[in-house]
Amino acid sequence: MKRLLKIEWLKLKNSKAFIIIGGFYILCLSLVTYGMGSFEVTAGSDEGLKTTLNLGKLGVFDFPYIWQNITYIAGFFKYILAILVVIFICNEYTYRTVRQNVIDGLSRREFITSKLLTILSFSVVSTALTVLITVILGGIFSNNRAMDVILLKTDFVLAYFLEVSVYLIFSFFVASLIKRTGFVIITLVLYTFVIEPIAVWQIGEPIGDWLPIQSIREMSELPFKRYAKDIIDLDIMENAGVSAMFRTLLYGLGFSWLTYYLFSKRDILS
């Protein structure tokens, strides 16, 4: 396992794409989560009561709610990591290095495993960074810093890890299938933001909830509704969706297996 991670690290560490996209990701994640304190949310309708709320003043960095708030925002940046994963998988095909790796004695199983390990590493680093940001921002701005309160709602951290890792595995699967960076990104965008949302809307519950992106989405929800609770009556999700986490995990395992299965059966032509 150490050997496989080392091979991947050698491929990544001197790549400009990795350094630039990785740096951009860290920068975006830090700035936007910090900037969350100045977000403003408008609740209500034009006819009824309408209020604009400043999240910072409402305690968006307060433990334990900060866990859900920050992981929710951080979740948007997984697409940057997905682009990185897609570029690196497609490069292996464009440069025909996947073929050379196999010829040099990396088994097909090892090749897929090395990519999955890289994806898990990305997810671990992303989760660790998110936790670090949460602890720092909470440490500075939270009104409540009692240990037992801090540890509440950390299930959203687990949900966040699943969200990132499974979406990256899904991107890996699509990239191994299509192999061309541009087409893969277009497919992912179309599927994630157009095809599946329409399918979910058309099919409806409960089957629609079982689709992969919907499962990922249902692990958490827009947390800032909480701050409008006093004005309008809303259901607030207090814990990460357990059933959605279970479905997401199944998709992670399923896509990993499918990627491995297809790769082991196929000719490596390019």
């Binding site: 091979i7 050698l10 001197n14 440069y95 025909r96 040099d104 004695g105």
Partner: peptide, 27 residues
């Protein structure tokens, strides 16, 4: 076994030494 199939396939953004470091680690 040492093998070349058709064209030489390496990571273009890496130097010769860095490319060989990957091969070395695989082998």
């Amino acid at each position: 076994i040492g093998a070349i199939l058709e064209t030489p396939n390496f990571y273009p953004y890496l130097s010769a030494a860095q490319n060989l470091e990957i091969v070395r680690t695989i082998k």
